[in-house]
């Protein structure tokens, strides 16, 4: 896992340096989306395997991970087509629609994670105060 991450980081830096075109770079974006997707699934499976963990959806990390999964899965196809078709008005419109919707969903889920986190902090604060 660490090796893949390092290789990916190296590749991204390389593509950042060498990319000269002003257009969208589909290959690193698509690979990054997939990598995030698999990392998040892997994380969830690891959490399930842990016998001491409580219900997944009661932790803020779960909602953050779900947000990343949905965003990276949903944007994979738009990203890999973007380099060639972003200048076409029809595609551009669809791309923006999909991307914006997923972006809103992602931020909404991040917000949910923050609310859960806030609740946990508050309840422990109240408990400490009662003491």
């Amino acid at each position: 896992m660490l090796i893949i991450s390092v290789l990916m980081a190296v590749y991204l830096i390389y593509s950042l340096i060498t990319f000269s075109n002003n257009s969208f770079d589909s290959v690193p974006s698509g690979i990054t989306a997939m990598l995030f997707f698999f990392y998040c699934i892997f994380y969830l499976f690891e959490r399930v395997k842990d016998p001491t963990s409580l219900f997944l959806y009661s932790s803020p990390a779960f909602w953050v991970v779900v947000a990343i999964i949905i965003y990276s899965a949903g944007t994979f196809f738009p990203f890999i087509y973007a380099q060639n078709y972003i200048n076409k008005p029809d595609f551009n419109q669809e791309y923006k629609l999909i991307h914006s919707t997923l972006y809103v969903i992602k931020n909404f889920l991040f917000g949910a994670a923050m609310l859960i986190s806030d609740k946990t902090v508050k309840s422990s604060y109240t408990m400490n105060k009662k003491k």
Partner: peptide, 30 residues
């Protein structure tokens, strides 16, 4: 670019269905 719109739509929907399906599977399994 024939059918790009269809591929984009169905591809995205498929990926989302896969992602949501996996998340739901993990939740129910847990």
């Amino acid at each position: 670019p024939l059918n790009i719109s269809g591929v984009l739509f169905f591809g995205t929907m498929g990926m989302l269905a896969l992602a949501i399906g996996l998340v739901l599977f993990i939740i129910f399994h847990q």
